[in-house]
Amino acid sequence: MTTSTRTSAHPTLSQRWLAELLGTAVLLAVVIGSGIMAEHLAGGNVAIALLANTAATVGGLYVLIEVLGPISGAHFNPVVSAVMAWRAELSWRDALAYVAAQLVGALLGAWLAHAMFDLPLLQLSAKLRSGPAQWLAEVVATAGLLLVILRAPAGRASSLVAAYIGAAYWFTASTSFANPAAAWGRMFSDSFAGIAPASVPGFVLAQCVGAVLAVGLNRLLGHHKAG
C-alpha cells in the first residue's frame, strides 16, 4: 500500500485535527457572517434576518459535513466528540484533540467573519441569552441533534443534520446553538449571532445535559436505523 493510499483511507490525527479546526472555523464564519449580513440588509426586521441566517447555516453545514465528514467525521462540536468517545468510536485522546481544534476553530471563525465585514477583530458579545426557557431549549436542541447523528441512516447524516438545525433555529427559544464550541466562538462576536460571556456556562451545561439525554434515549430506542 502506498503512502498516498493509506492517507486517503485512514486520515492521520493531524489531518483529522485540521479538518475539525477548518470545519468549525468555516461553520462559525457562516453563522456569524450571515448574521451580520442579514442584520445589515433586513432593515430591522428580525424575522427576515433570522431566516437568512438559518438558510446560510443550513447550506454551509450540509456542505461542510459532506466535504470533511470522510476525513474526521465532521463533528465540529465537543459534545458530539465526547459521545463518540463514550461509544468507543473515537479514542479519548483523539476526542480531546478534536475539542481543542473545535475551540480554536470557533474563535478563528469569529475573527474571520469580522475581518470580512471590516469590523474590529476583538469583540465580546453583550447579547444576554439566559433563563430556564433558553436552557431548556438548548437541552432539546442538543438532544435532538445527537439523536439525529446517532440514528441517521448511512449516507444521510449531512442532510438530516442540516435540516434539523434549520428547523431548530425556529422551534427553540435559543435558536439552537446545540454546540459548546459555537457558544464559545459566538461569545467573541458582538453581532446578531453573539452570546454574552455570562450566558455561555448555562448554555454549555444545558448542551451537556442534552447530550446525555440523547445517549439514554438512543439506548431505549434500540439499535434499529430506518432506511
Rank of each mutant, 00 (worst) to 15 (best):
A126C: 03
S189C: 12
A226Y: 08
A181T: 03
S14C: 02
G23D: 10
G216T: 02
E138K: 01
I71Q: 06
L21Y: 09
A173T: 09
E138G: 07
A168E: 06
H114P: 02
V67N: 05
N45D: 15
H40D: 15
N218E: 15
A29S: 12
T7R: 14
A206E: 11
L136N: 08
F203M: 13
V46E: 14
S91N: 00
P197A: 06
L147V: 12
T142E: 06
E66L: 11
T7K: 11
S72P: 09
L147I: 13
H223R: 15
L107Y: 12
A9I: 08
I65N: 05
S91C: 01
S189R: 05
L50H: 12
L128K: 14
A101H: 00
A193H: 00
A101T: 04
G105E: 06
D118A: 15
A97V: 13
A55C: 12
L68R: 06
G194N: 08
W86H: 07
W135Y: 13
L146W: 00
P78F: 04
S159L: 14
V209W: 06
A182N: 10
N77C: 05
A168D: 10
R156F: 08
T54L: 10
G155P: 03
H224P: 03
H114T: 03
V46K: 10
A49Y: 10
P78N: 08
V200S: 12
L220E: 04
A55K: 02
R186W: 05
T3C: 02
